[in-house]
Simulated assay, not measured.
Amino acid sequence: MEIYRERLSPTPWLFVATALLIPASLLVFLPISMVAGVIAAIVSYAAAVVILLATTPKLVVTSDELIAGRARLPRDVVGEVSAYRGAEATLQRGRLLDARAWLLIRGWIHPVVKVELRDDEDPTPYWLVSTRRPDELVAALARSSD
């Protein structure tokens, strides 16, 4: 049973920034041909948008596991779960980050949730995942472990 679902989709500003491919393509291909420039601009922007949308990961919490992108974590190894926002989230993604941690970080999503692992054989101490709704994710993980 699915308890929580979130899609870590890009922000609208990322699509606006990606639109800079349009003048770049025009700059390169307009000296060759006006038609080639317009076609190249449209195709390059459309390809960038498709790639951004196709590579958007999902966070799913079920009664059995946490799914973050393509990775799966059984609920019986989920330890302490904590949410971080603002400066604390920046510290978790930066200076306090353990190099062995498993990451699903998106630069346009600032809050993160830290999921500690209770598996002595796994060298990964915790998962750190970006989320727009950290409190809901923490609650869903707490609920799934009941």
Rank of each mutant, 00 (worst) to 15 (best):
K114Y: 01
A87P: 00
L117R: 15
R93W: 01
R85K: 15
L117Q: 08
R85I: 11
V112L: 07
V78K: 03
D98R: 12
E80C: 06
R93L: 05
R85Y: 06
R95P: 00
R93F: 02
V113T: 03
E116A: 12
R100D: 04
Y84M: 09
Q92D: 02
W102V: 04
E116T: 14
R106L: 06
S82H: 06
D120S: 14
S82P: 00
I109M: 08
R106D: 00
W108F: 15
A99H: 09
I109H: 05
K114H: 02
G94D: 06
A99Y: 07
D119L: 10
W102A: 15
G94Q: 09
L117Y: 10
L97A: 14
V112Y: 02
G107R: 09
R75I: 15
L117G: 05
R95V: 12
I109T: 11
E80R: 14
E121D: 11
R93K: 15
L103D: 01
I109L: 07
A89H: 05
A89M: 07
V78S: 07
G107N: 15
S82E: 13
K114P: 00
T90A: 15
L97D: 00
A99V: 13
L97H: 02
K114I: 02
R85Q: 14
E116H: 11
E116N: 08
L117C: 08
V77D: 02
Q92I: 12
A99I: 10
R106K: 14
R93M: 12
I105P: 00
G79H: 11
L96Q: 07
R118S: 10
G94F: 06
L91A: 15
T90V: 11
D98M: 08
Q92R: 13
E88Q: 11
V112E: 03
Y84F: 15
G107F: 02
H110K: 11
V115S: 03
V113C: 02
D98E: 09
Q92T: 04
D76K: 08
L103I: 09
P111W: 03
E88W: 04
V112A: 08
L97K: 01
K114R: 15
L96A: 12
H110C: 03
E80T: 14
L117M: 07
R100S: 09
L96G: 03
A101I: 10
V113G: 00
A87D: 09
I105M: 03
L104S: 02
E88S: 12
V113A: 01
G107E: 04
A83V: 08
E80V: 10
A83H: 07
V112Q: 05
W102G: 00
R75L: 14
L117P: 04
R95S: 14
P111C: 09
R93D: 04
W102H: 03
L117W: 08
V81N: 05
G86E: 06
Y84N: 06
G107H: 10
A87R: 12
E80M: 11
V115M: 03
R75D: 03
A89C: 10
E88I: 04
T90R: 13
Y84A: 12
I105R: 01
A89F: 01
W108N: 03
I109Q: 05
E80S: 11
W108D: 05
R95T: 12
L91K: 15
W108S: 09
I105G: 00
E121L: 11
W102D: 01
T90H: 13
W108T: 08
D76Y: 09
L103E: 04
A101Y: 03
R100M: 04
